[in-house]
């Protein structure tokens, strides 16, 4: 089993690689000296080298295993509820507006700790307050549906 560090190093080598490849397409020099490619080449190059060193070290050492990383049971469900409700909010906010998506997201999260009717009540209350504060007082143009909320 390889330590998780291997995957992390791999991730950074990948990021560095993509940037290096893109940066190589940019001119290194310009009319009056340095060009847009100067900094990215150096930064990504160094990043690849250092990550590679880290990768070699990671192969030698025994670190955290991948299996230890992902939580089990309730922990996993809680985590998925957080990320999932957030992602759901992102997906639907464009179509149904802030109010409904926010109530839905909060409902999922509150339901993890409270009875459903309490969860629903709190979701609606929090959404209503925040909508009022941000939209009316602070003048932030929140995404809304065709009814204006």
């Amino acid at each position: 089993m390889k330590s998780i560090e291997v995957y992390v190093s791999g991730f950074f080598i990948l990021v560095g690689g993509v940037i290096f490849w893109q940066a190589a397409l940019l001119p290194y020099n310009s009319q009056y000296g340095p060009g847009p490619g100067l900094m990215p080449i150096w930064v990504s190059g160094l990043m690849i080298i250092l990550s590679a060193v880290n990768l070699v070290i990671a192969f030698k050492n025994k670190g955290t295993q991948f299996a230890d990383l992902i939580p089990q049971g309730t922990g996993l469900i809680n985590l998925l509820a957080c990320v999932g409700s957030f992602a759901l909010f992102m997906l639907i906010v464009k179509y149904v507006g802030f109010t409904i998506s926010s109530i839905l997201m909060l409902f999922i999260l509150f339901s993890r700790g409270y009875k459903w009717y309490w969860g629903l009540g709190m979701s609606i209350a929090v959404t209503a307050i925040l909508f009022f504060v941000f939209s009316s007082i602070l003048g932030v143009p929140l995404p809304v549906n065709e009814f204006g909320w």
């Binding site: 009540g121 709190m122 609606i124 209350a125 959404t127 209503a128 009814f147 204006g148 909320w149």
Partner: peptide, 20 residues
């Protein structure tokens, strides 16, 4: 608390309707 919640919900519905 439940009274406050009910009132708030009512408020939301009213505001929504009046906009419409």
């Amino acid at each position: 608390i439940s009274l406050v919640l009910v009132l708030l919900m009512l408020g939301v519905i009213l505001v929504g309707c009046s906009n419409f």
